[in-house]
Amino acid sequence: MPTERELAISPIVQESVQHNTRVVSNIRSLTASLFGVASGILGLESYAGFAFYLIGTFFVSVLIWAFLAKGKQGEYFQGPLSELWAGDVLGGGMSFVLTWTLFYGLVRA
């Protein structure tokens, strides 16, 4: 976290921080259920499914980093590690498991 002095020298626009967090969490929740669909179709089980989710999440993070942040993650995120690379991973995991089990059951009825 930046110190009080750094914040006084270069203030943070809270509105932009919230906007960026919202954009990332929108993408996360959409792609999490998408990965659930995919791993259900592929018929992944137990650890393989979670590994698929983590790899997919990392891939989406790289996409956001390249396309939206243009490689300058410090300019758009206060803590890039927690807001971009690990942001909403656990929250998206719930919707991942939901669609994973649904599509696994649908395809292998």
Partner: peptide
């Protein structure tokens, strides 16, 4: 997705 906004 929407464009990100610079935070500083």
């Amino acid at each position: 997705a929407e464009e990100l906004k610079p935070i500083t």
